[in-house]
Amino acid sequence: MVNLTINGRIVQAKEGEMLLTVLRREKIDVPALCHHEAVEPFGACRLCTVEITKEDWNGYSNYVTSCLYPVEEGLIVSTHSPKVNELRKTILDLFLARHPNSPEIRQLAADYGVFKTSYETVVDGNNCILCAICTRICDTMGFHAISTVGRGHGKEVAPPLHQVPPDCVGCLACALNCPTHYIEYTFDNNYLTIWDKKFELMVCSRCGKKTITKEFAEYLSKHRDIPFSYFEICDECHRKELAATMGQITSWEREA
């Protein structure tokens, strides 16, 4: 265990933990767009930048991305000092210039008092902030269906060869975790379309509700050792059935 001071309060943390993890646990509101528990810290959005210092630093301080900074004994952290706020404002100002139409970015910027960018607005921009949560999560899920393509100004998230991604199973992990909801998908009757790939949805054999895609169910059943029949019934019906099963078990126990 290590002891550190966060905004004047002494906090204990586990060795090797990242600073942002501790801040989140202490319910300190530090913005971050590229952070997700399911993937390694990335340091792309820079918004979780905090000011750190130590007693023997003779008044000097440093600015670090808390998501990538392991906690240390005696660390003194300020999450909302005037300079940190100023830094974050500049970052949000730049975000706003590149993604002026993103409601999430606008809200976050407004929270820090940035309502209009002081830079030149990118006219034909999109809402992708290149945080790579989507591609990293896709890797974690084990599909590796999408990746970042190109670099510099032309960098984007795309399926391989800019074609319909062969490895995508339509799990929606990328789209649902996108901080700016940039990745589009549509539900149309029994079909889900994402990355220009059309998937047939499974239908609950009890209530007729649509559940996950057939490809996703097949993947889970194959790689996570879950019988395929499990996915033929929706979550709600599974729970309804659970009561009956538990009743059965109780009656067996009573008999025994």
Binding site: C138, H144, S147, T148, V149, G150, R151, P160, P165, D167
Partner: peptide, 22 residues
């Protein structure tokens, strides 16, 4: 060739494409 590379080296095609475009 990119597809064959992905298969032979056992690297996901998306990663091959990512590197090849970088």
């Amino acid at each position: 060739a990119l597809q064959a590379t992905a298969k032979t080296l056992d690297v996901p095609l998306s990663k091959v494409f990512s590197v090849a475009t970088f």
